[in-house]
Amino acid sequence: MADGRLVGDKMSHASESAAAGKPRPLARGSIRAVILALLFSAAASGVLAVQGGDTSVGQQLFQKNCIGCHTIGGGTLVGPDLQGVTERRDQQWLVSWIENPDQVRASGDPIAQQLDQQFPVKMPNLGLTRAQAEQIVAYLAAQSGAAPAASPAAAALLAGDVVHGKDLFTGNARFSAGGPACIACHSAGGVGALGGGQLGPDLTLSINKFGEAGLDGFLTNPPTQTMSAVWTGHALTPQERADLRAFLAQAAVSGRPTNTVVQLALLAIAGTALLLGLAQVIWRNRLRAVRRTMVTAARR
């Protein structure tokens, strides 16, 4: 378990320094060696875990990557309830699916197609290694027979404050852990005429897509790569999640997605053009070019 932890930390450390563009005074070869060693140890521990029944690494990975969308015996959220999944599905398939769902999809797998149709959000690529996927599957197998664990869905959801939720969304109020305001990447109905960022999807109808519990889970532990990268280390408090949920729930009812604003603008432009055309017709007898018309007529 310590190994698995280490892997994550070291890797993120290495990628951070690379992303920051500040080369450390560490030889490139030695970094590669460390990474390889760690990977190997992680894979070895993963295999051991699967064989030996130690599922704590898998549990941690599950907590980190999966509970945004899935429960074990807690009911369906955005993704299916994973109670007994190791019995429903072939384990090797599960490992492949968790490791790289895109590849499975590309191979034309019928189960993948069915899942994609059945659930609102497609299984994302979480960037896990095969070893980590195996750890998770091992954990799932161990949990399948166990009593339902406590899950976000089961816990009572806090009531949120719409106004504060909007403030958090637009950045008028700061997140206590210092994450960026949602509006930097997302738009939602009710944040103003210009909308928000276009990098991420429009969140106006997100509550309908995820459901209250699903959204809470998503925000607790954002599963997508981008969100995960941004929010690691800046976890939202339960109250902040509740406020954002409340705001998005209201946006879904009263707000307008940004693309309808665009439609409205296009409609306005078309209306203006129509009115201008109409004015041309109504005032077609207006005075124009007296001298020029006279000269042209006289020369004819």
Binding site: A279, W283, N285, R286, L287, R288, A289, V290, R291
Partner: peptide, 11 residues
């Protein structure tokens, strides 16, 4: 906003 009987500068 639109007086239709104005001479233009060409006139």
């Amino acid at each position: 906003f639109y007086n239709p009987y104005l001479p233009s500068v060409d006139d």
